[in-house]
Design a protein around this nucleic acid. Structure first.
Lengths: 231, 231
DNA sequence: TTGTCATTTATTGTTAACAATATTTGATAA
DNA sequence: TTATCAAATATTGTTAACAATAAATGACAA
């Protein structure tokens, strides 16, 4: 039941991006990756092609693969698309959540709050992402779920680039109220909350100062946890 | 400025699917493709990985690549997602169309009608798809445009599988009224029309009899392409 | 005929060597 | 020092051979 080398690479990179261990602009060298995952370069190349199709990696001919660096215009498009998709998801999820779903989400909120308190950014981002993705699962549309998965990934890159450290994540009381509305089946309110939640996140962005990006492949790709910025 | 072998292959296959020259289930052999595009198999494999990431090709380990065969459930998800996205696109496009845009769309409607009359299915599908994609361009959100591009592709596969030959495409008078609303900037009406348009398309599907699919790589892949560039 | 199974053939998957292209390094001169 | 440029190094891109797996073939027996 182990999956192909390509899938391993793709998933490891997606996870790393989702937890901001791999910042935008990081070079993804073929040699480095084939060493890390002990496979051949052909597998790495296929994985990178796949990631490029998902818009989380940029392929520059003869120069290699890099974690995508979203422009301000792309950031706008991505958040606009996210609102459209998450509103739809909210509509379809409303009233469909099982007791397990609600319990998971309530627990998730605590988890995220703890991670935030502990200053564990990757854990916080992971929890926050899980919150949004779980609601997408409740909605039961795999296409929208996949789209949202891609957009949350790219959102994380955007936050890493344009967020004045601190505003970089969801407000937990908003998550709380979202679960309340979801549980109550108050559809219109839920949709409205989801929309506002994303507007707040976007409002926290600052495009004034151009982003400075670290550029080397951080070996945190293999690390299960932890991110001391050091330096 | 010619693009890489991968891009060529990807675009040729996408075009072929969009025009129903490549039906669902068609096997995409590596040898056959590398012969057709006179490149090596490594390029073919990368292209197929990319197409798989876009969900238009299915990769079965040790068995090869096949044009994706959407299930009824996937069909439902895809049309639901399309409605959400095209409604949003309609909202953003409303009142933003230039004179050129309107002229293009009016002309496109005639083109589609002619193709239908002439029984030229690929031309009809191409025109219909261009109609939807042009409006997406007017809306100005590249993310939504890309999502819609993927969904129209998959919709074409669905129509090829589950459409009782005939209902398999858009009603032209609906396109007409959509352009009217777009030109008038009548946002709410436009959104409503777009939604109904897609519901009608979906309502024409029949999932009762399981689809029979031809399975060989049709050499229609090489048919000359006339896809005029955007704007 | 029809079904089974071993053999052959074709296809996908892996690997390593090589070529083409960037990038880095270090010497030289202003 | 600083700038320039050629050589050295590293990385990406291509190719062909080989291995592993699946599909097709055909002989044989009921």
């Amino acid at each position: 039941m182990k999956d192909s080398p390509e899938d391993q690479i793709v998933n490891a990179i997606l996870d790393a991006i989702a937890e901001q261990r791999l910042p935008a602009g990081t070079k993804l060298g073929e040699q480095a990756l084939s060493d890390l995952f002990s496979c051949n370069r052909a597998n790495v190349r296929r994985a990178l092609a796949s990631l490029a199709a998902q818009q989380v990696v940029e392929l520059r001919p003869n120069r290699g693969a890099f974690v995508m660096t979203p422009s301000p215009k792309e950031a706008r498009d991505i958040f606009q698309a996210r609102r459209a998709i998450e509103r739809t998801i909210a509509r379809h999820a409303s009233g469909q959540a099982s007791a397990d779903d609600i319990a998971f989400l309530r627990d998730n909120i605590l988890e995220e709050a703890e991670a935030r308190k502990a200053g564990d950014k990757p854990a916080e981002l992971r929890a926050s992402r899980q919150f949004h993705m779980r609601i997408a699962q409740i909605a039961g549309n795999l296409v929208l779920e996949r789209f949202l998965s891609e957009l949350t990934m790219r959102s994380t890159l955007i936050l890493g680039l344009y967020s004045p450290t601190g505003s970089s994540s969801c407000a937990e009381d908003e998550h709380d109220r979202i679960v309340d509305a979801l549980e109550a089946g108050d559809t219109e309110n839920l949709v409205q909350l989801a929309d506002e939640h994303l507007r707040h996140l976007e409002a926290g962005l600052n495009f004034d100062e151009p982003p400075a990006a670290p550029m080397s492949l951080q070996e945190q790709l293999m690390v299960p946890r932890r991110t001391p910025p050091a330096k």
